[in-house]
Amino acid sequence: MFECEVKNWEGDSVGQKTFELRVAKEETASHIVHRALVRQMTNSRQGTASTKTRSEVRGGGRKPWRQKGTGRARAGSIRSPLWRGGGVIFGPKPRDYNLKMNRKERRLALRTAFASRLDDLIVVEEFSQQFSRPKTKDLVGAIASWGAAADSKTLLILSERSENVYLSARNAKNVKLLIADQLNVYDLLHADKVVVTVSALEKIQEVYSD
């Protein structure tokens, strides 16, 4: 059971919010979160880097000079890896970097990563109604009043997408907005402060409970 203070739009405390998430045991928590983070980082790699071997480089079919009698080293092709413009030895080729991780493990890692940010977690009331139109300055000011410094990286979690809030957050340099059912380990750990609305916190419990 975790307990957090709830703040309103002006940054004043208006109550407490408790939530419950099943997390990994202390001795295995860092290991499973690390595995999930490595999986996410490697799975985001395109794996399209490619170099040409000596057989794939254009040209080099003719022997550049005769085998003996020139005083120079033996050479069979101008596309040898030893030559400028030649092939590449053991260079990268297209490959799949994807790592597998069980769904239950991924969810456990996500819950554990979220719970580990309890000291940096800021729970706020719904504020989408404050935006009749996009206003980045108002959002940045509100985040500062909630306790997140302007130069710190802030992860803003909402229960559902609000177009005006999304457009306001899009221009903020250090603010990233996510919907509660689209969380990932990297963003949770990368942020200095995590701001979550009450309804988003309830949705996180609902979506990631098992």
Rank of each mutant, 00 (worst) to 15 (best):
L21N: 05
K17I: 04
R107P: 06
G59S: 13
G11F: 02
D151T: 11
D12V: 08
L167D: 02
I78T: 14
V194P: 01
K137E: 15
R79K: 15
T18E: 11
K203Y: 04
T197P: 02
E125R: 12
S162Y: 06
K93W: 12
R95A: 12
E160D: 12
P134H: 06
W9P: 03
L201V: 07
E56S: 05
Y166F: 15
L183D: 01
K68N: 08
R72M: 14
R111K: 08
Q130L: 09
F127T: 00
S13L: 12
R84Q: 14
V165Y: 02
R66K: 15
D96A: 13
E56C: 08
N102D: 12
V6E: 00
A24R: 05
L110V: 06
W65Y: 15
E10Y: 12
V33E: 00
R74A: 15
H190Y: 10
R117G: 02
T112R: 02
P134A: 03
D138T: 09
A113M: 08
A148M: 03
W9E: 04
G60A: 05
S116T: 03
E20T: 06
L121Q: 00
V165K: 01
S152G: 05
G60Y: 01
A169F: 03
L37I: 07
D187H: 05
R62H: 13
Q16M: 09
N98C: 07
N43E: 01
L201C: 10
L178W: 09
L110M: 03
L201P: 02
G86I: 06
V198A: 11
A180C: 10
S145F: 11
Y186K: 00
P64F: 06
R103Y: 08
V185A: 00
D181R: 11
R39K: 15
K135R: 14
G15A: 11
F127S: 01
A75D: 07
W146C: 03
N8E: 04
N43Q: 05
V207K: 03
T42L: 14
V124W: 00
I89W: 14
G71R: 02
S55H: 15
S132I: 08
T53G: 13
V175M: 06
D210S: 14
A24W: 03
N184P: 04
R106N: 02
R107N: 06
V195M: 04
V194Q: 01
S209F: 14
E5Y: 04
G69I: 07
Q46L: 10
R107V: 06
V194L: 08
S77W: 13
S145Q: 11
Q16I: 11
E206R: 15
Y166G: 06
R79F: 14
R45H: 15
S152M: 10
R84E: 02
K104M: 04
I143A: 06
I204Q: 01
K52A: 08
L21R: 05
S199H: 12
D151I: 07
